[in-house]
Nucleic acid binder design. Structure first.
Lengths: 163, 163
DNA sequence: GCTAAAATCATCCTAAAGTATGACGATAAC
DNA sequence: GTTATCGTCATACTTTAGGATGATTTTAGC
């Protein structure tokens, strides 16, 4: 307890002792030489200078260092394996469907595509023009990140978006 | 508030107290010995006190703050999704395969077709010309009794000829 | 060695698929 | 009321797929 108090306030105690010693020294010097014959200004100036220095020293010693917290964001890429349930019984993967932002109409086109229908046949079945189906299919390829209808069907089946 | 002020400036307060005690000590010594001029001692003590404070203030205000840079590495886990198709219980329908009289090479073409490859890509993979693949695919369509590659894939999967 | 099926490749042509872009009305969200 | 999305349709163009036909070369069986 006593030792911990000393170690904790070592600076203060040392400063106190050193100041006491300095004052003694000054007293001694005052008596012996300076004060009697010399100007008071020098003495006071010396006091001011010394104690300013002491104050600075004390402040620097006791000042708590500021903590600069730098947060470095480190990306760790973890490969997450997604097992796709074998479609013995088809369960529509709504999560993946929504993630791909495929519209209802596009899904219809995709389903008919998977049955092997041509664009013209799909157009006839949905009572729209061939060009409309071409637009839908093009959009589908972009959303599914594929180049051909065969790939689109393959991926969509793999993702359980279609049967 | 008061307690936090005390804890924050404990060092300074302790220093003040210790200095006051020292001054008392000096007063006592002064009485014991030579000192005559009381006002001068008080004056010098005040000077010492004030300039110590000035030193502390100077140090705290003007000195560069000590900075401890704490680097915290924050790990962000980025999940990279890998789609895995599990091995479904595929049993090759050899009976149907033989009935349709599809050749080995044609089956290869059919399998690559089902993966969504174009005729050119299939040709490159099998190290044959595009025309060869066209011939194979044409023959396949006749044998499978379909009109398009998408239908061929659909039917072949349905007949368990391909996965 | 002959034969038949399989595999290869070609040419010419048509059909279908796919790309790019713009437009327009409806509908829902802000 | 403006913005955004969706669904629709169009034009113009390029690429790919597919059909018809014929030819050559391998390969395997008799």
């Amino acid at each position: 307890m006593t030792s911990s108090f000393f170690s904790k306030h070592k600076q203060v105690i040392l400063y106190g002792i050193s100041m006491a010693m300095l004052l003694f020294l000054l007293k001694w010097l005052e008596l012996r030489y300076i004060i009697i014959n010399h100007s008071l200004e020098i003495y006071i100036g010396a006091i001011a200078f010394i104690f300013t220095g002491l104050g600075i020293w004390l402040a620097l010693k006791l000042a708590k260092p500021k903590t600069n917290t730098v947060i470095i964001e480190k990306e760790i890429i973890v490969e997450k394996e997604i097992l796709i349930t074998p479609n013995t019984e088809f369960t529509f993967n709504e999560v993946e469907f929504n993630k791909l932002e495929i519209s209802k109409r596009e899904l219809e086109v995709l389903q008919l595509m998977s049955k092997g229908l041509s664009n013209q046949e799909i157009a006839d079945q949905l009572f729209v023009s061939l060009n409309t189906i071409k637009t839908h299919s093009s959009n589908l390829f972009v959303k599914l990140d594929v180049k051909r209808r065969t790939q689109a069907v393959e991926k969509a089946k793999r993702l359980n978006i279609i049967m």
